[in-house]
Amino acid sequence: MALTFRLDPPVDPGLRDGLLTLWSDVTNADGAVGFVPPVTTEDVRPELVRHFVAMAEGRARLLVGYDEEGAVAASAFLSYNGHRLMRHWLWLYTVMVHPRHQGKGYGRDLMAAVADAARSMDGIEAIRLTCRGGSGADRFYEACGYKEVGRAPGMIRVAPGDDRDDVTMLLPLG
């Protein structure tokens, strides 16, 4: 079954808890979403709150993919660029598909829904993201149409002696 995507769903305890579980489960399955395993939902909570604040202030939007049972199965945060000369593109953050749903094409579905959401926003012409080198994420995003436009070697320290590249990728929407 396909996921059902919703842009800017109401933030309620069910969504909050679903995102916390998604984020911790993705991280603990070795997903490159800003943490290193092991994490708990309480470890993730402060970062989710920061995302919710950005949404409340109108600086970010949330796209959620729900599975056939109505559970949060995928998500991505789209953040407007505040720089007056760069408002024609947005940042994509914290792209996640729950491990139990990986391998079903839901990641590609999520990225297509992200592009559709961005196209619906006034003045947005491109999506920019960064990902952790060595995780395979750059190959996934490339398969979704993104192009690598920059690489900062060793800028992400996963653990002492394990530094990864910070890879910047871009998807023009034109």
Rank of each mutant, 00 (worst) to 15 (best):
M1D: 14
M1I: 12
T4Y: 05
F5L: 13
L7N: 13
D8R: 01
P9T: 11
D12Q: 14
L20V: 15
S24Y: 02
T27D: 12
N28C: 11
D30F: 07
G31K: 06
F35T: 09
F35V: 07
F35W: 10
V36D: 10
V36A: 13
V39Y: 08
T40P: 02
V49G: 07
F52M: 11
A54I: 02
E57F: 03
G58T: 12
A60Q: 11
G65C: 13
Y66A: 14
E69T: 10
A74E: 11
S79W: 03
H83P: 00
H83F: 01
R87D: 01
R87E: 00
H88P: 07
L90F: 01
W91H: 06
W91Y: 12
T94R: 08
T94V: 14
V97S: 07
H101V: 13
H101P: 04
G103P: 02
G103A: 09
K104I: 00
G105H: 09
G105A: 10
R108Y: 02
R108H: 09
A112Y: 04
A112D: 07
A115R: 10
M121K: 02
D122P: 10
A126W: 02
I127A: 07
R132Y: 03
G134M: 03
G136S: 06
R139P: 00
E142P: 00
E142R: 03
E148V: 15
V149E: 15
G150H: 04
R151H: 10
G154L: 02
I156S: 08
R157A: 15
P160G: 09
D163A: 11
R164D: 08
D165V: 02
M169R: 01
L170N: 05
G174Q: 12
G174D: 15
